[in-house]
Design a protein around this nucleic acid. Structure first.
Lengths: 264, 264
DNA sequence: CGTGCTGTTGAGGACGATCAATGACGGTGG
DNA sequence: CCACCGTCATTGATCGTCCTCAACAGCACG
């Protein structure tokens, strides 16, 4: 493949509190104990090759999947055949929390690995134990809320605005989400087709838009890769205000609140 | 005002299990006791006139608001001044659940009454009591999930597709959501401006689109109102599959499950 | 009776979709 | 080792949907 898989194929799977999943949980307000309990709920892991399906809606279910390493996307296949990517999953993200909460809901969504992925599997019968901890239950609730907030933000920028703004916003958001779980690289593992499917634009036009961003020295000139080199300007083009997913801020606020709760 | 407010101004506020709120809670899996407890949490109600702001993000917070009667919308004001409606609230809908779950998140969203509204107010300090009931906690979690599912669906149809499809989908969705909480009228309390802001289209083009729908005898010819007369065809135009919010189905499934639980 | 919001119509222009063709690269199989 | 294929990236040309600007009519309200 043309896409730089190899750079991602060797991604090591971090474990514990400082892993992407640990950081994600903590940013959602999980206590140290919560993180530990959550990791204990992970009985086994699965490796999925790039381009393979991680979760098909018609799958049996009964287990919760959490991305440990790699990048995936949720997409909806429409009648005319084209796939509409509705969200990206990065390390630490829950893939199918909604299936646990509303098992009967069939939104028609599958999840595909964009790079090689490592997925943690948690059986539903172990979920009761996790949810019996009120703080952890709230963490999962918050994860759903954050997901909704991301959709909402997409909705408000995707329909309006030029292609340049849309693509820039998309890149900004994904970059920030990855950094919030400890991924420092500014290279995003997306193909132009992925971006087109996610932004609701044609591949041809995405190509031209990315060329523009390269010419503006916002994206790296190294051709196949999508690498952000001038994040400030990218955010300016996008009109991006990342506060809707500024998990870092939530971390600190929550830490304070937890301390107060314990001392009070 | 041109909009047919008067028809909605006199909307009586139903109460109890058979009210929109009660139906909504039950469709999300609430038991009869849960509904009763929830209503007991409502200490007072507020009436908001059409076009007034129900919730401003800069408001103090500390209380949860639930729509009892009337129709409202959540919108985001963008730099260039235009408002982007991200969702509509109908009777029984939670307005600002996300503020309770993630208090620090400031998505930049206000909520405005489209018709005269009656809003139930629940203090955060009463929420602990509600959430101590596991089934009720799950109900609120599910409400968040359903909200996310609605955003997701919007996302997959709003960007792609023609204006006709988008508008048709919007109308289909709102119609179904209203019917699922017991509102039988096929007249929707939206202005063309509202629809434009929600669909991400210009007002002018929405006007022409609606004229097309009227000419197709999908919408009523009575001019100022948006009234659906041929829902089948509307759904066909929209490519609408309402299973992502088919709460009716959830109701029955849940009822069965509850009975089994009680007998087992 | 003016003001404000809504709905309606017309004309021009722009952004992005679509169609078509090419090159580059990786993987596969002979 | 080479030919083949599929995916991705790129370029040019044309076309259409929808936006923008502008103006006007109707109704409600102060």
């Amino acid at each position: 493949m043309f896409r730089l898989w190899k750079a991602y194929r060797v991604s090591r799977v971090a474990w514990g509190a400082e892993s992407p999943l640990g950081l994600n949980l903590k940013s959602l307000g999980a206590l140290a104990d919560d993180v530990e309990v959550f990791f204990q709920g992970i009985k086994h892991r699965v490796v999925v090759a790039a381009r393979d399906i991680v979760i098909r809606e018609s799958d049996a279910g009964g287990q919760l999947k959490v991305l440990l390493a790699g990048t995936a996307c949720s997409y909806k296949r429409r009648k005319d055949g084209d796939r509409r990517i509705v969200s990206f999953q990065h390390p630490g993200d829950f893939c199918d929390l909604y299936r646990y909460v509303v098992p009967d809901l069939k939104p028609g969504i599958d999840i595909q690995a964009l790079t090689d992925c490592t997925v943690a599997v948690i059986d539903y019968r172990d979920m009761d134990g996790l949810l019996s901890r009120p703080t952890l239950a709230t963490v999962l609730w918050r994860a759903s809320m954050l997901e909704a907030a991301i959709y909402r933000e997409q909705l408000s920028t995707t329909s309006r605005g030029t292609a340049l703004e849309r693509v820039a916003h998309l890149l900004c958001e994904q970059l920030q989400r990855r950094q919030s779980v400890g991924i420092r690289s500014t290279r995003l593992p997306f193909s132009q087709v992925d971006i087109a499917n996610a932004a609701g634009l044609s591949v041809v036009h995405v190509n031209r838009t990315i060329q523009t961003l390269r010419r503006l020295n916002v994206l790296s000139a190294t051709r196949p890769a999508i690498e952000v080199v001038d994040r400030r300007q990218l955010a300016e083009i996008a009109g991006f205000d990342g506060s809707y997913l500024d998990v870092q801020k939530l971390v600190s606020k929550w830490t304070v609140q937890v301390i107060k709760d314990r001392c009070g």
